[in-house]
């Protein structure tokens, strides 16, 4: 699933860093059925980890009720322009991806 993450981070006027990320993922709950009445197996992101350098700035657990192609945004203190931010996800089938961005 390489290339599934679009991430942007920017220092806002109050000095906090705002991170916005879009992830390409089906986020299938496992409760839906296809047209033949077969259950579509669950496939959704369970964990998202976001790091500023080595420091974890957000740890997230998601269930299947987060929308398809999920969006996430949050803010944290202590970052400066040019720092690196890293976001990674893991889904219930063990698949994962990670991406980095430079804070603007």
């Amino acid at each position: 699933m390489a290339g599934s993450i679009k991430i942007r981070a920017k220092i806002e006027s109050d000095g906090a860093c705002e991170v916005k990320a879009l992830i390409k993922h089906t986020m299938e709950t496992g409760m839906r059925k296809d047209k033949d009445g077969e259950k579509i197996p669950a496939k959704f992101i369970q964990e998202i980890l976001c790091k500023h350098g080595d420091k974890v700035v957000l740890e997230t657990n998601w269930g299947g009720a987060v929308s398809k192609n999920p969006y996430i945004s949050f803010r944290f203190d202590g970052a400066s322009k040019g720092d690196k931010i890293e976001l990674s996800w893991t889904d219930n089938t063990g698949e994962s991806d990670a991406a980095e961005a430079i804070i603007k």
Binding site: A16, M27, T29, M31, K55, V56, V57, L58, E59, T60, N61, W62, G63, G64, A65, V66, S67, P70, Y71, I72, S73, F74, R75, F76, D77, G78
Partner: peptide, 23 residues
């Protein structure tokens, strides 16, 4: 059907602010 959608752990320095899209 299962009420819990998302759970966020915020370390010190992270603002109490999260935004996402849910079903």
């Amino acid at each position: 059907a299962t009420p819990l959608v998302a759970l966020y752990q915020l370390p010190t320095g992270t603002h109490p602010y999260v935004s996402t899209r849910i079903k």
